[in-house]
Design a protein around this nucleic acid. Structure first.
Length: 787
DNA sequence: GTAGGGTTAG
């Protein structure tokens, strides 16, 4: 029709057949025809006609020529709702949501009220943008015109509130809806499941039954995934069983939705049953099912299950590989995970941000901090952008080795991509800065977070606790209890740990009591460990031992270690022997117990016993790991090894150490070390002096930084009490803030248990080739050391 | 013209 007409139109004078010119059915069939028609419309002055212009806008929008459509729109003297609606529709369809909203606000500024065709589009836009405030305003507008009773408007409005996470508003809309169908009900079920409201889910299901709406597989899957996503694992499993009970058969989506919950609950039996069902139904070809299955076995600690599934699945699929990497790392097989990751790279697999984040966090959680940072660098070289999960995965690695420069650049990155409001990122930054000795930065990050969850508060408290700032920890705790958040066992660990470091016995007891009495938290091993430390440090050894005897569960090595360390401070042989006997059983591999016990004997002059312990240690072939500390001087982190005398500044260091020793004696300072040294050979004294990497590191720092600069030292082993006292003295003597931390994960026992030898000369530290090359290549000379 | 369900990283 158009084809026949167009040539005619060209020949007939416009003035006569104008109406034909304006018939959109003649020119809207292609973009070029639209453009031609537009030119003619302009020539004839017909653009002022609302209908013609609206059709032009619709046609341009239809061909995604939004600029042309906009030009037409702007040229209309009196635009109508109709003029705007086609552009809004097309922009929404093209996913240009913000632009769509912009056109609407222009329309509204003309005093035009959206009709029942525009409103669903607008709600869709608000849903996509999670623009709750805008959505609510548009809802109000629809109420004024009474269009909120339109079925389409209601449907989209309901969806908008759901997408914005406004369950209550969505529910109000839902309750007013005239037509409720299975789709709407499923959405509501999913929403309540995400909130963990099992009762509400059950109620809606029975209401559906009353209204004759039968839940379908999508409804059930929505319930399961909702519960799972919000961490309501038990509820997910309950509903899975209920669904099965009602005769609704799981499909691949059901299985992949419920398996993560099964894994979190470590219900290996149920997981295996599902595995059997899945195999029978032929669902083992689905990549999500396989990933979820691997994940389930990984969480349940069945490493062989992971490997078997992965090897049976023939396709190399990114998601499956990611689940495999995580499963391996989770079960301590991080070396195999690294090996597999290398293989995936070789095979040029499409590794995504989840793949990289998985391996990075696997390394960081298994003590491979340098590898984690190397992978983080490699990830960026590969052009994969880190996201809100990558950052909190790599930050612990920075904290563990005090790689402040890396941590700070991750912080900068987080700022650039606007992640500072994320509680995971914030908490990880607080922790990293605290571990790198920058507690003031932890405080700044904390203060700037708009919303804080318990993890953020706990990170800050543990940071101050690490720095031995008990007053601050207590005052943060007071602020915490004034919020709506309830402190948990971790909050109390920081409190007790801080009190024990500073010797606040009364406060320690008060918090210990408050924990169970006011908050119903049963004290765990770590809390007892703190209390033993607290009492031991206050010289109340017997009281500490009595507390251990009263413990409801079997004390672990941290508790006995705390007692043994306290015995060292008081040189109490009787209790030391009891504690050591327990530790020999609990930690037969730890040479620290032998060393500590022998030191206590030595302090008492019980040389026969000293020999016995040392001989036993030697006969067991035990060697002490070399002590190694890191210190940052300007922008370089130096590695300092215990007993290493090959440093170019050796003379200066020795001189400084002598000066400090003299000053200590002059001020009547009597570290325990002196007691041990009374009866030892000159040569051994020398070894004792050099046997501690943290002291060496501090002196090295003193010599190479301007007066007054704060120093931070990180140590690979637990820091011994003597070193702590000496460093505290140096700090006062030099007028410097000196922060010493060990990399031991067990915060409570840090700083209190000896593992450092006083008398055994250390073997040269040998970094493996991977760590060494990582240091040299990626950190561009950042790490140079004394090795 | 609106509208429902999946895996793997913190």
């Amino acid at each position: 029709m158009t084809k026949q007409l167009l040539p005619l139109i060209e020949k007939i004078p416009q003035s006569i057949l104008g109406f034909l010119e304006y018939s959109p059915s003649c020119w809207s069939s292609s973009l070029s025809k639209t453009t031609q028609a537009h030119a003619r419309i302009l020539k004839s002055g017909a653009q002022n006609d609302g209908y013609i212009s609206a059709k032009l806008i619709a046609s341009y929008s239809n061909y995604s020529c939004f600029d042309d459509a906009n030009l037409v729109l702007q040229s209309i003297p009196d635009p109508t709702v109709y003029s705007f609606s086609s552009l809004i529709y097309a922009l929404t369809k093209a996913k240009l949501f913000s632009k769509s909203l912009g056109v609407f606000s222009r329309m509204f500024s003309y005093g035009l009220i959206p009709d029942s065709h525009v409103l669903p589009n607008l709600f869709k836009v608000c849903a996509e943008l999670s623009a709750f405030e805008a959505g609510k305003q548009i809802h109000c507008i629809s109420c004024v015109s009474g269009l909120d009773m339109d079925a389409f408007v209601q449907g989209s409005l309901f969806h908008m509130y759901m997408r914005c996470g406004r369950m209550e508003d969505a529910r109000k809309v839902f309750d007013r809806m005239f037509e409720k169908d299975v789709v709407t009900c499923s959405a509501l079920l999913n929403g309540y499941a995400r909130k963990g409201c099992l009762e509400e889910v059950v109620r809606i299901l029975s209401e559906m039954e009353e209204s004759g709406i039968e839940p379908n597989i999508v409804s059930w899957n929505g319930i399961l995934s909702g519960f799972n996503r919000s961490g309501y694992n038990k509820e997910a499993v309950i509903m899975f069983q209920k669904m099965h009970h009602l005769g609704c058969f799981p499909d691949e989506v059901t299985v992949s939705s419920v398996l993560p919950s099964v894994g979190d609950l470590e219900k290996l039996d149920l997981g295996r049953q599902i595995h059997g069902y899945v195999a029978k139904q032929g669902l083992l070809k689905d990549k999500c099912v396989i990933s979820a299955m691997i994940d389930m076995y990984g969480k349940s600690g069945d490493a062989s299950g992971i490997v078997k599934l992965f090897e049976e699945f023939e396709v190399m699929e990114t998601g499956v590989c990611n689940a495999y990497i995580t499963g391996l790392s989770r079960n301590g097989l991080v070396d195999k995970a690294l090996e597999m990751f290398e293989l995936f790279k070789e095979k040029k697999m499409d590794l995504n941000v989840v793949s990289w984040t998985s391996i990075i966090s696997g390394c960081a959680q298994n003590g491979k901090d340098i590898e984690a940072l190397e992978l983080f660098r490699e990830m960026q070289v590969a052009g994969v952008k880190p996201n809100r999960v990558t950052i909190p995965s790599m930050l612990p690695a920075c904290g563990n080795i005090a790689a402040l420069v890396h941590g700070r650049s991750a912080h900068g990155f987080a700022v650039r991509i606007n992640l500072l409001e994320d509680v995971h990122v914030g908490s990880a930054l607080i922790d990293m800065y605290a571990k790198c000795g920058r507690i003031n930065m932890s405080q700044i990050v904390f203060d700037m977070m708009p919303t804080k969850n318990l993890v953020c508060w706990n990170s800050l408290m543990s940071g101050y606790s690490m720095h031995g700032k008990a007053k601050e920890v207590m005052s943060i705790f007071e602020s915490l209890v004034r919020t709506r958040l309830k402190p948990d066992f971790i909050s109390f660990t920081s409190l007790l740990s801080a009190c024990s470091q500073v010797g606040l016995t009364d406060e320690g007891w008060r918090y210990f009591g408050m924990m169970s009495e006011e908050y119903g938290i049963k004290p765990r091993l770590e809390h007892y460990s703190c209390m033993v430390n607290l009492l031991g440090r206050a010289g109340k050894l017997q009281e500490a031992y009595d507390l251990i005897k009263e413990m409801p569960s079997e004390p672990d090595s941290c508790v006995w270690g705390a007692l043994l360390n306290s015995c060292r401070l008081e040189n109490n042989v009787d209790l030391a022997e009891i504690a050591a006997e327990k530790l020999f059983v609990l930690e037969p591999e730890n040479p620290g117990t032998y060393v500590l016990l022998s030191n206590i004997y030595a302090a008492k002059g019980m040389w026969t016993e000293v020999d016995r312990v040392r001989n036993k240690m030697e006969s067991l072939g035990m060697k002490k790991n070399p002590g190694c500390s890191w210190i940052q001087v300007k922008n370089t982190v130096y590695t300092v090894l215990a007993g290493d005398k090959s440093h170019p500044q050796i003379d200066q260091i020795k001189e400084k150490m002598d000066e400090i020793s003299k000053e200590m004696r002059k001020s009547g300072y009597r570290p325990n070390l002196d007691l041990v040294m009374q009866d030892v050979e000159e040569q051994e004294k020398e070894q004792i002096l050099w046997g501690h990497s943290e002291k060496l590191a501090v002196v090295f720092g003193l010599l190479n930084t301007p007066d007054g600069t704060p120093l931070q030292v990180i140590k690979n082993l637990r820091i011994c009490g003597d070193c702590h006292s000496v460093i505290k003295f140096i700090s006062g003597y030099e007028g410097r803030e000196i922060f010493v931390r060990d990399t031991n994960r067990c915060q409570i026992s840090s700083n209190h248990v000896f593992t450092e030898s006083h008398s055994i000369i250390l073997h040269k530290f040998q970094p493996n080739s991977l760590s060494l090359s990582a240091l040299i290549d990626s950190f561009q000379g950042l790490w140079s050391g004394l090795i």
